[in-house]
Design a protein around this nucleic acid. Structure first.
Lengths: 173, 173
DNA sequence: TATTGTTATACTCTATAACTATA
DNA sequence: TATAGTTATAGAGTATAACAATA
């Protein structure tokens, strides 16, 4: 049960390891989505929309954005043809945001790319250490979410099963 | 040597744990630096400058920025009174970027704040699990840096010893 | 000619305040 | 009045291309 040989690297210390890992992951994420022409936040949006068709206000809560920031995000994503605004009949002030066909396509390919590249980040670790790292990071994330009343289900680009097309599969093809 | 009780939280999986942890750390970092009126990138700049007095080109390499982005960053930081441009006599095209007194002061208080808050992020884990997590994340960072020829010494806001005033201590007070 | 750095331009992303339309 | 969303504005951060000054 001792760590694999690689974990004998110099310890950065908890705080620097947090910060530097976070920068590495952020750079990989941005580079992967950018290589498909999708800015990082819009890629995150695609991931969130694979699971739901939120209103603008819902989306602001899920992504932690001000309502005006949400408007701007959806404007830009709509200009790229990734999402559309769908009127809500019950409340004519409100929209639901949904993926377009192009949005579904990009969500899939970008999600696969991000998943593959982030897996490579840990492929030098033993299976045991990979599971250990995953559990410890998950524990930190859950602990933080619980302390701040955050809904973890918002998800990211990478967290969908490949057969899960989401609530609007009728709009596909 | 079994994990502590908390690590029995639901496993997000390696990829989602990477992404969500990276978002949590990024948010904590931004909020901590923002509470002192310092935008995140400028805070990272302060951390880097505690260790050296780089030229604009050095800085671009250290932070992974284009030279035009570096110009913009130093312009903004200078406008806040955090850094100054120092002429290099040997090459009159070049500047060195150095912290001002206010820059040194803010680098210290912001660094302490970030360190404290990021430590809290893992304070529910046992000492053993904290060390394990630190080592595993360090291993991932080192592995990634080695594969991409990256200089890890760039550092972050948090990685200085409190007694290390850096190369320009004569300019303090 | 090559390098250092700036400027012009164009995006993305973020928030505050004022606004419109609907509930 | 309160809520959903947009607009106006301001600023941070990113990059590409054209440029000036120096090596």
């Amino acid at each position: 049960m001792r760590p694999t040989a690689h974990t004998t690297d110099v310890d950065l210390g908890l705080v620097d390891a947090f910060v530097q890992l976070s920068m590495v992951v952020g750079e990989i994420f941005s580079a992967a989505t950018g290589s498909h022409g999708v800015p990082a936040l819009q890629a995150r949006l695609l991931g969130v929309l694979r699971d739901r068709e939120p209103t603008m206000a819902d989306l602001g809560r899920l992504l932690g954005l001000d309502k005006s920031s949400t408007t701007g995000l959806i404007d830009r994503a709509q200009r790229r043809g990734l999402v559309r605004r769908v009127r809500v009949p019950e409340d004519r002030r409100s929209y639901r945001v949904a993926l377009t066909d192009e949005g579904w396509r990009l969500a899939a390919v970008v999600g696969e790319d991000v998943t593959r590249q982030l897996h490579q980040l840990a492929d030098h670790l033993s299976g045991t250490d990979q599971r250990r790292l995953s559990l410890l990071m998950s524990s930190v994330v859950h602990h933080h979410a619980a302390e701040h009343g955050i809904d973890l289900s918002a998800g990211v680009v990478a967290n969908r099963r490949p057969d899960d097309k989401g609530p609007t599969e009728k709009t596909l093809q």
